[in-house]
Computed example of a mutant assay.
Amino acid sequence: MERKELIKQWYISYFPKVASFIAKRGGTLDDARDIFQEGLIVLYEKRNTAFHTNEEAYLFGVCKNLWFKHSTDQARFQNATIDPGEEPEPTVAENRLLQLLDSAGKKCMQLLQRFYYDNEKTETIREEFGFSTNHSTAVQKYKCLEKVRETVKQNSLSYESFFE
């Protein structure tokens, strides 16, 4: 089979699966095309040697690995733009939210941070804060949330108040 026809056949047969895989993981159609073309080069070069495997599985595996590498490189690049020792300055909306949470008290703010930001388990939080049971920990979390809600009501704040 002629090279041009072979590549066309691969596109028709295998590209939709690769494009679907990449789209489900946040990639664009252009990303899928780039990754697929790189995969085709690898497949075509490998095909010219002793190649005894399923072409579709091989191509999909190559594209999958290329996508994971691409995603990792993108994440590394985005993280490199912020100095690790330097926290980005909070926006006005974030400052409002932090002030609101701070109005509930330092202990409440720490408790809510452990639950919602750090995703710690109730048992860990109970031990750290010295609560007697998991239930009393959950009750304290509820009381902290109620303090925040009450402040929101008193100040007539709305959802939109936290956006610029």
Rank of each mutant, 00 (worst) to 15 (best):
Y14I: 03
L59Y: 02
A75M: 14
G27Y: 07
L111Q: 00
I125K: 02
R114W: 11
E55Y: 00
Q154I: 10
Q37M: 08
Q99R: 11
E56G: 06
H135E: 11
R76L: 15
R76G: 00
N48F: 10
E87Y: 12
F68T: 13
F68I: 14
I35T: 04
S158Y: 09
V92Q: 12
L97H: 06
P84Y: 03
I22Y: 06
L29K: 14
P88A: 08
M1A: 06
I41Q: 10
L101T: 01
D118H: 11
Y44K: 05
A80M: 07
V92W: 10
Y159P: 06
F60K: 02
E127Y: 09
Q78E: 15
I41T: 12
P16Q: 03
L6I: 01
K64N: 12
T53R: 07
T91F: 03
T151G: 11
L100Y: 05
L40N: 09
D30W: 04
A75C: 09
R114V: 07
L40I: 00
Q113Y: 14
L100V: 03
T91A: 05
D31F: 03
G85P: 06
K147P: 00
E128K: 13
L97M: 11
L145T: 07
E55P: 02
E86I: 15
E2A: 09
L6N: 00
Q99F: 08
D34V: 08
E45V: 12
S136L: 12
H135S: 12
K8G: 03
T91Q: 05
F60Y: 01
S158P: 02
